[in-house]
Amino acid sequence: MTMTHLALRQVSKVYPTNPPLHALREVDLDIERGELVAVVGPSGSGKTTLLSLMGLLDTPTSGEVWIDGIEASGLSESERSRARSDLIGFVFQQFYLLGSLTARENVATGMLYQGLAPAERRARADAALERVGLAARASHRPGELSGGEQQRVAIARAIAGDPAVVFADEPTGALDQASGRLVLDCLRAANQTGATVVVITHDLGLAEMFDRQIHVLDGEVSG
């Protein structure tokens, strides 16, 4: 039996620019637990806003965001932070690795706010690096890794804490095709271990490799 994992109900997001920018318009969306979903759409269509709302990084102007059975609008800022640390892993196009830390330390930092002991963080970081095929590069700093490897470290960081959902915003956007494929394989592997994976991309060819495609256009969602 599947179960709805993420849901948006009549969600709108309006940025208070002049004139106001309607990034999302009354969006309803359900994503089942364990799905591998691509969110596609052209630049400015509202994909990143959608990810921000589903990932509890931002709040909707109206409507409800449900994640793992909890309606997010009732959460305080502190509770949203905790929900992010416990439930969600993020992968960004720019990797956001800390340059002075090794790959292992970067991955372990991803669990810093979960309250895990340092030894457990290190053990999980090593396991996550193993899963993305970078166990041998655990002691390397980001500057010593290729772009694809850096993104895989970022994926290891996102999945090391065993999140329920992984959001990836254009994870292959800065990579060549071969590196991008490896990154996608890592995300797919994370999905196979039970995580719901939502990947944002503007690349329709890439999106076709996913179980489901959600199309965003001018703040409206279909699919």
Binding site: G55, S81, R84
Partner: peptide, 16 residues
């Protein structure tokens, strides 16, 4: 700012 955003995404509270 990127690091701040990343830490917030990873669950850091504003106080932290």
């Amino acid at each position: 700012r990127g690091e701040v955003g990343l830490r917030r995404a990873m669950g850091a509270r504003t106080g932290q």
